[in-house]
Design a protein around this nucleic acid. Structure first.
Lengths: 138, 138
DNA sequence: TTCTCTGCAAATGCTTTGCAGAGGC
DNA sequence: GCCTCTGCAAAGCATTTGCAGAGAA
């Protein structure tokens, strides 16, 4: 992920932050804050959930991470910058990337009234794991 | 909204539920549960937030209302069945409909693994009210 | 010293749940 | 009576905040 340009004077790359960023680097599992906390905790016991949230907030502001609202129950985070879309299994909550370009232009009467900053397509479905037998992979 | 076919034996159209459904009928403001509660309360003082949530859950199951996750802070509800999309002003949180058909087909390797149940495009922007002066209409 | 960061714990805010009482059939 | 529904209050979770102490420059 690289700490090239930082948010502002005074940003410190602490071990906690480095661990969080290392976990996110290249990660395509769209983890929740709790997921990140649990993962980082394994290798680096000195982290608190508050620091995870704090760091995610900063990474968001730096544009290094995107917050996903596809899951109504909790937020997920995505370090991938390239534009892409998401699909969530409504049973096991697994989120996968949908790499395809969609033509998402809003009608002109809307683009006159709104400055569009972001857009994406969300897909909701059931994965084959969940569709088969009972609800494994919950 | 009409109570044609109901969820199952035993569904009662109580005054509270009727008031909630009446408020939602034709409503295009994408209200949150709290919004619905406040609005219904004006005309019908005998409602509780719990009943609003309870009713929304039932309406969702009946397919008469859709839950929107476009706003990370709270859920919004939409009684419109016709497929459409949404745009939210990230400042004032106003949500408007985007009536346009987008070609949202997932790549074949994904449709093989997932049974897609729903799909839609979400747009994030800033409305002209918020973009101009300070943050009115907060 | 000065400033940012951290962990902890408390506080928020949205949503859900438990439960005893009310009302309809 | 039987069953569903309601309001209230408590509980549950995810997320945020306050704060004193730790650490780097």
């Amino acid at each position: 992920m690289g700490m090239g340009q930082q948010r502002e004077r005074g940003f410190k790359l602490t071990p906690q932050r480095a661990a969080i960023m290392a976990y996110l680097e290249g990660n395509r599992s769209h983890p929740s804050a709790e997921d990140i906390y649990a993962a980082v905790l394994e290798k680096y016991p000195m982290v608190s959930l508050a620091t995870v949230y704090n760091t995610l907030e900063i990474l968001k502001q730096m544009g290094k991470v995107t917050e996903l609202n596809i899951d109504g129950e909790r937020k997920h985070f995505d370090p991938e910058i390239e534009p892409h879309h998401h699909l969530i299994c409504t049973r096991c909550k697994k989120i996968i990337n949908v790499r395809k370009e969609f033509d998402l232009e809003v009608p002109r009467d809307i683009s006159r009234e709104f400055k569009i900053m972001d857009r994406h397509a969300d897909f909701y479905g059931v994965c084959s794991d969940c569709d088969n037998g009972a609800e494994k992979a919950a």
